[in-house]
Design a protein around this nucleic acid. Structure first.
Lengths: 227, 227
DNA sequence: CCAAAAGTGTTATGGATACACCCATGA
DNA sequence: TCATGGGTGTATCCATAACACTTTTGG
């Protein structure tokens, strides 16, 4: 460790991998850059860190700026620091991923040309953003099996089918309907409502809600989510 | 994303959580600061990022500076950016952890008052270094069950007992001897040597080596380490 | 009455865990 | 010969995986 003064500095940025779910597909929110470098190409939404904010603050600000959303699930992933990752300036970037439910809040800031892409149909991205997305996916898969983050991607009320489809998309594999429902019910962290979703079938399917209070109680009693 | 010019800058540092194993205990290498702030207190070894190096480079440089070691297992953990985490200057720090085998290479750079502490007997550290260590431990536990990192902490030749003790220390729980050996043997990634360690008992116990080549082959054939 | 999705339990399998005795050797 | 740590196999249990038919209701 050396003296603080006269240390070399670099720019520090955050980039957000914004995942969304529209009851069918896992998607990612990208913006079309209207400035150089790489103008016209797709990229993650990002921004520079300000002196009076933490990286978490910066990520929250960037996400809010684009989507208007607050209180979104976000998690820091890691720092990227290749010397030439940004051709303009030496910039180190810390990536964050966010999970949001698409249909309920889709008032995107018109200042940016933002668009939702199915996760497997996303275009090539600038700089090292493709790697960031790949790493985010792998973290998302891991998290999905250790914390009930799936519910962040769903509306307040959702059907078992939607929940299963979400997990299938995240994990990238088909799941058995009965085993999935048995497992979820065994966790005992859902509330079954009286309401039914009549849009999906003639019979209709019950809506469930995530019981955050019960979950928190169970966790503090030593329960650990495992799917 | 805004213009690059006139962005606010912060100092960017790396801090290394250096884990070691001396065939009995999991230890951590700390230095006693001989400069302000917090002179005389224990801390992680760290350093500022230079403009012409990546964060990985910086972590490797810092580790090498203290221990003289090269080709050490290191992994980036995460960035810490609380506004007041460093009282002198606004500094964002990226933590790395390293795994080294203690006895074989213990020529520490005398310029630093460095000392190995048992992981559970380490002193209070400056700034947010306690949190960094706690997070590193939890990552170490996770990694130990998904990748064969344990071998980084052992000498080239080691006994089953040493390997088991290492895993017990990392995981923080006693393991059954027969089950552990069965599991390790089932993985089929060790080479049993003809040599015996005669220091530990009258009967002596066989030395094993990690078969890196076999492991790599198995991994590229779809094998995943799981303990 | 038919099509389409919802809802519901049991069996089989395999991995994880618990467990105790003999062996080799130096002193 | 004895004390010390090394080395070895099997039975049980539990969690996971496989699997098919009935229900509801709008058209």
């Amino acid at each position: 460790m050396e003296d603080y003064k006269d240390q070399e500095t670099v720019l520090l940025a955050v980039d957000c991998i914004i995942f969304g779910f529209d009851k069918k597909n896992l998607k990612i929110l990208l913006i079309k850059r209207d400035f150089e470098p790489e103008k016209g190409h797709w990229s993650l939404m990002g921004g520079f860190l300000k002196r009076n904010e933490t990286l978490d603050d910066a990520a929250i600000r960037v996400l809010n700026h684009l989507t208007g959303l607050e209180n979104v699930y976000m998690e820091q992933l890691r720092a990227y620091s290749a010397l030439d990752r940004d051709p303009v300036e030496r910039t180190v970037s810390v990536s964050y991923y966010a999970l949001i439910d698409i249909p309920e809040h889709s008032a995107l800031n018109g200042r940016f040309s933002a668009k939702w892409f199915n996760i497997n149909e996303a275009p090539d991205l600038i700089f090292d953003h493709n790697v960031m997305v790949a790493n985010a996916m792998s973290r998302l898969r891991y998290r999905a099996s250790t914390k009930p983050i799936g519910f962040e991607l769903l509306p307040e009320k959702f059907t078992m089918k939607q929940l299963q489809t979400l997990y299938e998309t995240i994990l990238g594999e088909k799941l058995d309907k009965r085993n999935f429902i048995n497992k979820i019910n065994a966790l005992d962290i859902l509330l079954k409502t009286e309401e039914k979703d009549m849009k999906s079938s003639r019979k209709g399917s019950y809506f469930y809600m995530f019981d955050q209070v019960k979950y928190n109680t169970k966790v503090s009693d030593g329960f650990t989510f495992k799917l």
